[in-house]
Amino acid sequence: MSETLTAWQLIASGDATLFAIVGLSLAVSLTAVVVAGIVGLPLGAILALTRFPGRAAMVVVLNGFMGLPPVVVGLSVYLLLSRSGPLGELGLLFTPTAMVTAQALLVLPIIAALTRHTVEDLWLEYREELSAMGVGWASRVATLLWDSRFSLVTVLLAGFGRAAAEVGTVMIVGGNIDGFTRTMTTTIALETSRGNLALAIGLGIILILLILLVNATAWGVRVWAVERAG
């Protein structure tokens, strides 16, 4: 790659490597958010609705884990997936699947904790009405998630922003392998270490624009849906 090219020239020239990197970044982070959402949304809602001994401690832990250091998550997943680790036989280390796993774990507490918060507020409002309608437990979870859907879009976006912007886990479990596990953030780290600061900053701007684009799209969908469903 020619170091004199700026990021903008790369975009303008339709640089295939750059687009592959952007594509991988989006695919990994979006998949991680979807996986974390499938687990985290119901988990948060269940935590909002149920009362059991140790619940307060669990809420505190979950809130605290919103600030999990990516490097620690990355290292844990690394040790898990390493050939010497318990899941080594799957041969997943240094693959995109490993990066999705690590980012999903990183994002899961954010999604679950914020969902818990959102759903609990709505639950206070809905509680009597749903009890009076004889709505069962599982159905309550589904109803509250569906009726919080506009707020939950923001929750998922918070998760996506965290996943797309972090470099710690993907560097460790992905290995920053050219053409295979190299994402926007690891490329930025690499170009910085090569002293290509202009290119690194340019890539950083592209990453920020991408995150903005995803957010703007989600915002547009949200406005449209609110218009339709109130």
Binding site: A27, T31, L92
Partner: peptide, 25 residues
């Protein structure tokens, strides 16, 4: 649909690995 989407994504990602079976680290 979301569940299907997710499964699809995972398959795509999982598919990358065997496609490049001739690879070393």
């Amino acid at each position: 649909t979301r569940r299907l989407f997710c499964v699809g994504m995972l398959l795509i990602l999982a598919g990358v690995t065997p496609a490049l079976a001739q690879s070393i680290v």
